[in-house]
Design a protein around this nucleic acid. Structure first.
Lengths: 339, 339
DNA sequence: GTATGCGTTGTTAGCGTTCACAGTCGTGCT
DNA sequence: AGCACGACTGTGAACGCTAACAACGCATAC
């Protein structure tokens, strides 16, 4: 009966002994090296199986200099958008054979992003994905360690990292054009926070579409993504003459707008049409069901990992890439032709 | 001018050379060992600073057997509840000095959980948090590696791991009692999926409260957490006589119920009172604003990390603990006294 | 028969850190 | 003076793995 030398998990040397080969041969089998005799390979494999051996990835990372771990820096991962993006990233990374280490920031500023990346770099991540939807965060991309592969999600084009994002301006255009096509003279806008690039992009698409159609551009109302801010904007709009169409920068705020309108007796879509953005799972069941613009967060996550992994696995001086995922318009019951 | 020996990041030996000490002394400074002369310490510290040295956590983990990384296995991290929980876990872990490696499962079954834990164990995590709200996932806790510190969130009491959870039954009781106090003869229920323990707990609290008050217990309607399933349940309830109060197992389904009622001309709360569960950010702006039961996910995250870290840092044969976080009732406008 | 080559295996030396142990020095005691 | 003891520091050997090289056997070629 073989003495059990230790209660510690078996290491490569144990496998080697059991299979009657050297530890290096075990390593070769594990790493699919070509020149191992089939018979030897199976002997090693059965030894691995019998001992329940699992290779120590830490030791491997120490010598290969690759941890096969990716860092993700995100912000407010409770919001639907960031949560979905991070989910997509995690899934794609795992499919590509990478672990994911996550840091969620409360406030996203230059120092915060830098600290988070430092923290992750200390853990020897092979690369980082920074979900940087705010202008301040995008600026922080400029002082990433230059030798660390990185990709920004929704990060704008500052700094020299690759960027994957949804075409927010196109989304704003789709929403606004839809409302104009319904016969509305112009479209009001409830925007997201000023420093968010997504908010800017959506507002820009809205403004450009109105301009191109030769319509007046009303002063946008500023929100902060929260239902409450939408509610407050909605109260203002309900008390403003001539408002027949509103493009709200996200679905949560649109919910607030609908609520304010309901309280004031403004009927949607009969009197005012409302379009949101994000297509959260709830929006199909708002009262009325919300016309909105959907984003494919899964695609964003997949793309970003694709770009990052390519950057890691090729020479690291890869050219920065730029990937734009198109939004998709979702028509529901909160919009109607002007009568 | 000191020659730069390599473009590689500096290691402990480089610092030692610069400070004129041995690598071991550098290690001692880094680990706050007591017996280092203050002058030597500052010399080492300045050398570290000058070289921009950062200690290699991989090498450290290899020898100490502690990676200071925690694994998190979760399910459907796009939902508000799991997303918030994971967020709380991540934050608490980082504050405790641990990294967090996340695996998000699509389907959560015994094999899935085991694979995920194996995967994480291969990365040498010091412990795992399993967010296991489904009965099948809770069962999977039984075959976790016995020597791996673990804590289950919302995981029931099967297996012998510590559990942190919100008192779902108490939440169900609060909701139901509130409706009874308003004078309703009984309370209908739209439940979550059958195999979710949270759904079970809430239903149990509801049922027990009705029984204790000697009220009839209507057959619950089964949902799947989605707004759509709530909508369908709502249509059934709208067509059922004698329904004056409904306790819905989460806010998303409650939204669907409200929508169905609105379509059928059932006025809330005048004709029917509705209570949800979760207190998602949107629910204050539903039409009408939703009375609901909130869960402190942040507390759940903090507690679970607390328990896990204690288990890791003490002898690993810690007794399994059980932590219950109380829910909190949130009164809004979707409930009213029966007239 | 020796040379050349390839397929296969083993040996050795790291990767960057911590741990165990062994020094060295100065201080206080007998 | 001699000794013990504490504070401080250095040396060597791990941790578990892969990379580089060396060595072996055997076939093929000259």
């Amino acid at each position: 009966m073989a003495s059990t030398p230790a209660r510690h998990p078996p290491v490569m040397a144990d496998v080697a002994r059991a299979a009657g080969v050297s530890h290096q041969t075990v390593s070769r089998v594990l790493n699919d090296h070509p020149n191992v005799r089939p018979e030897t390979r199976t002997r090693v494999l059965t030894a691995i199986d019998q001992l329940g051996y699992r290779r120590n990835l830490l030791a491997r990372a120490l010598v290969t200099k690759h941890s096969r771990t990716l860092g993700v820096v995100s912000f407010d991962t409770v919001l639907y958008g960031p949560a979905s993006t991070v989910y997509g990233i995690e899934r794609a990374a795992r499919e590509a054979g990478y672990f994911v280490s996550i840091v969620s920031l409360r406030t996203i500023d230059r120092a915060g992003v830098r600290d988070a990346v430092d923290y992750l770099a200390g853990q020897s991540v092979d690369g980082v994905v920074v979900v940087a939807p705010q202008r301040s965060a995008a600026r922080a991309l400029a002082d990433l360690p230059p030798d660390l592969p990185a990709v920004a999600v929704e990060g704008g084009h500052s700094g020299d990292v690759s960027v994957v994002s949804v075409d927010q301006a196109e989304g704003g255009r789709l929403a606004t054009q839809h409302l104009l096509d319904l016969g509305h003279a112009t479209v009001w806008h409830v925007s997201g926070p000023a420093d968010w690039m997504e908010a800017e992009g959506r507002a820009e698409g809205w403004r450009a579409t109105l301009r191109a159609a030769g319509r007046p551009v009303p002063e946008p109302l500023a929100g902060d993504w929260s239902p409450r801010s939408g509610y407050e904007a909605g109260r203002v709009l309900a008390g403003t003459d001539g408002v027949t169409a509103v493009f709200v920068s996200n679905d949560q705020m649109a919910l607030g707008v609908l609520r304010a309108f309901a309280e004031r007796g403004v009927r949607v879509p009969e009197q005012v049409s409302v379009v949101g953005f994000d297509d959260i799972p709830e929006s199909a069941f708002f009262s009325p069901p919300l016309t909105t613009v959907g984003q494919d967060f899964g695609a964003v996550g997949r793309r970003s990992i694709e770009v990052l992994v390519r950057q890691i696995e090729s020479s690291r001086a890869g050219p920065r890439e730029r990937f734009v995922v198109p939004p998709r318009f979702v028509a529901r019951a909160s919009t109607a032709p002007l009568r």
